[in-house]
């Protein structure tokens, strides 16, 4: 009758039921929840698209620029996109409140556009994406990122060479 001990313990300690859904729910800081996308940091390298197993991330070239789309309803919350993103442009938040009525099914998505711009140095049409900081030391300052955003890949390379890159 070991079990009676447990009953007594349960009666003495009271129910262990949490107050949710009538009260707030505890969420751990590392909870892998809804994906968030930070357009200004995206370099358009498409690493996230390549590692996304369920095909929840999609890049399309459109006349206006590079379109980023992400559908929450097929995302498996694995976090590989965040793991392999070189600029932390894609990030997994701790938001898990995602239950929705079925008519919202297709609006559960992220749609962003990295627009085309004309290179501020040579005037060529180019994507206004963030520069890829991998292996660059010291890292780009926010001002430099804004500057590079307006450059085409060739002019970026030139600017980087002028900046000096010890690594």
């Amino acid at each position: 009758m070991n079990f009676l001990k447990i009953f007594v313990r349960n009666l003495v300690n009271g129910p262990s039921t949490v107050s949710f859904p009538f009260g707030p729910a505890w969420t751990p800081a590392r909870m892998r929840g809804r994906i968030e996308f930070k357009l200004p940091s995206c370099t358009g390298c498409r690493a996230c698209e390549q590692v996304c197993a369920p095909g929840a991330i999609r890049f399309d070239k459109t006349p206006e620029g590079l379109r980023f789309m992400m559908w929450h309803n097929t995302c498996v919350f694995c976090g590989l996109c965040e793991f392999y993103c070189p600029t932390d442009a894609i990030h997994q938040s701790d938001d898990w409140h995602m239950a929705h009525a079925v008519d919202q099914k297709f609006s559960m998505a992220i749609r962003e556009l990295i627009p085309y711009t004309n290179c501020s140095a040579c005037g060529m049409k180019t994507l206004a994406s963030a520069p890829n900081p991998v292996g660059i030391n010291p890292p780009y300052t926010p001002e430099e990122i804004e500057q590079h955003r307006q450059l085409c890949p060739a002019c970026r390379k030139k600017a980087l060479a002028e900046r000096g890159n010890p690594s």
């Binding site: 809804r34 789309m69 559908w71 929450h72 919202q104 297709f106 609006s107 559960m108 998505a109 992220i110 749609r111």
Partner: peptide, 10 residues
């Protein structure tokens, strides 16, 4: 369908 739906950005 996702492209055709203009839902709230989220």
């Amino acid at each position: 369908k996702i492209m055709a739906t203009t839902g709230p950005k989220s």
